[in-house]
Amino acid sequence: MNKREVVFTVNGETRRVLVEPRRTLADTLREECGLTGTHLGCEHGVCGACTVLVDGQPTRSCLMFGVQAEGASIRTVEGLAAPDGTLNPLQRAFWENHGLQCGYCTPGFLMLATWLLERPTPLDEEELRHVLSSNLCRCTGYQNILAAVRAAARELDRWTESAPA
């Protein structure tokens, strides 16, 4: 097949891969880069399990082709913990709040929440729920996922109490 060379960075490391144009970014990360932390759930943009950050934006990597990533800076779940494996505050909050159940949706939620916590505007309950509604958890463990992101936001001083209704 007509494979193409594509160059991008993943978690700061330059990757040069050969992919067919039809290869999604998700499959490119998993198959060509060996980064299987990015999970594929529905493969048609509904579940959000494959969410990664592309040039700082949360992106469903099943809805983007690997060839489109030329020159892009990509962050995946593999880039969150310290090199020695120490969890970052968001990962630790998931651990402490039982935000992982089967773990399948976790990488997508972590990357979505990473973006949410890095935004300049403080986070409140309404926005938290609005944004996290992007992704599905097949265990329906949403309350603990919300609690985890809330806890991380508090620890990182990103949380603001919503105005009383």
Partner: peptide
């Protein structure tokens, strides 16, 4: 726009 899908979809 707040009714269109979800934030990651809206960014692309």
């Amino acid at each position: 726009v707040r009714h269109i899908a979800h934030p990651p979809i809206r960014m692309r």
